[in-house]
Design a protein around this nucleic acid. Structure first.
Lengths: 138, 138
DNA sequence: ACAGGAAGCGCAATGGTATTGCAAACTAGT
DNA sequence: ACTAGTTTGCAATACCATTGCGCTTCCTGT
């Protein structure tokens, strides 16, 4: 159990502290991206700042990616295997449900190439689709 | 001059107050989307809250649209003619320059249709391309 | 012209999120 | 067990968005 989670951390060169094991364990149980506040509530009682720094570390090391879905709070979700430290491959579509306000990754849907005017250089693309998710559509 | 701006407001059913004329005039002079703080600085000395409410009113009436470019502060830009109150047609790409941190609209580039999994219903799409703009690329 | 009401404005105040500093607690290697 | 470096928890700060409220101003109906 814990060994598995621990390996995930060490593979990404992250010291497996007790706190980080808890955070990763919690992330693994999520079906959608979560905010820092969600994490704080789920791991109560824990210090918000510590959780914040754990997520930052995970992001830096390529274990999670952050999503700005326009809700005001940054969301975090586990990366697919192919992410590396400092070089994310998270160019997939994120979906924000206006009903349940959950954000989920749609990793199968790659972002199409966007034609830019002359002189513009693309480095990063953020594509959020908002609407109603499959759980709320009925 | 002022008459022109005034007409733009009345056409959208917005009372043309002195403050709003100033705000719209300032918006017309911009080449990129601006934040509330930008507006506040440009129209100093003016009350931030009043400017905030002017922008909200403009947005509500379909005169401007807001853009969340991930910079933390909401940006505002004038709509194309075809926007109506409560029903924006601003489904175009926005470009955020990582160098000059300016956000601009790329209205010629419509957002491509994104295929969604079964049961997902799209209502809105937010597409931000980040990179280097034509002014900063050299 | 007058009275009443609606709309707009400016100040104060609140709430939420992100971020940094610092000192104590902890961990790992010797 | 000792020390150096890492991690943690608390305090504090900085923004941004948003609301409440009283005052002024403008419009309207009589």
């Amino acid at each position: 159990m814990t060994e598995n989670i621990e390996v995930m951390l060490t593979e990404k060169n992250i010291n497996p502290t007790a706190m980080r094991l808890l955070v990763l364990d919690f992330l693994l149980k999520q079906s959608s991206a979560i905010s820092l506040t969600d994490l704080e509530k789920g791991l109560d009682p824990s210090d918000r700042i510590t959780l914040y720094r754990a997520l930052k570390k995970f992001e830096e090391k390529g274990l999670v990616h952050s999503i700005d879905d326009g809700s005001g709070a940054t969301k975090y979700a586990l990366c697919e295997n192919n992410c590396e430290a400092g070089h994310h491959h998270d160019l997939h579509v994120h979906f924000f449900c206006n009903t349940c306000r959950e954000t989920s990754c749609l990793p199968k849907h790659h972002i199409p190439q966007i034609p830019l005017p002359d002189g513009f250089k693309s480095e990063e693309v953020n594509l959020i689709v908002k609407g109603v998710c499959n759980k709320c559509v009925h």
